[in-house]
Amino acid sequence: MRGEEVIASLKEFISDDTLIVSSNGNVSRQTYNFLPRPQVYLRGSMGLPMSIGLGLALAQPEKQVLVITGDGNFLMGLSSMTTIGNYKPDNLKIIILDNEIYATTGGQETVSSTVDYLKLLEGLGIQHYGSLNLVKSPSKLLEAFEILLTSKQTAVLHINVEEDIENLENIPWQPKEIKNKFMKNI
């Protein structure tokens, strides 16, 4: 299963009370194309989606904040996971779509394959739901979403995905427009 299919499968789990922060590149483009709008679509600031999610979760404790990030972005912002592990807002959930490459820039390898995500998250004291391998067990995806998004604490779902076939077009909204539409909708 590819990352874009995973994002599209999230649709039925996203309500008005879900605020999504999507990492720059393919992930935010897919979030824009396949999930309800508006959400936070990052154009740059690689490595920062988790910290933006933390700030948003603290400001909006009644809403569910979902960060969707690729592995390259996650690894760049890894130290912010220690901050999240320390403060643990209940309403913050993170999905890592791990294709082990920088897909948007041409498929260069990340170092993600060296990481044991479960041990990493355990070490940070963050709840996780196993590494979901969709190549082996695609049917477990919806169940995993359900468990993640109904969790009463900070939680992370790591998913091994296949490489997307092609990059989507850039998001047509200008950054200021993204901000204004997102904030108006809260």
């Binding site: 605020l19 922060v21 936070v40 600031s45 490595g47 920062l48 989606p49 988790m50 910290s51 933006i52 999610g53 933390l54 700030g55 948003l56 979760a57 603290l58 400001a59 909006q60 912002g77 130290s79 912010s80 220690t82 901050t83 320390n86 403060y87 901000k179 997102f182 904030m183 809260i186």
Partner: peptide, 19 residues
């Protein structure tokens, strides 16, 4: 919130503002 890096702190503050 004790950030680990200054850019992380900017991310937190921006997320808080978006909220």
């Amino acid at each position: 919130i004790a950030a680990t890096r200054e850019d992380e702190a900017v991310g937190i503050a921006c997320g808080y503002y978006l909220g």
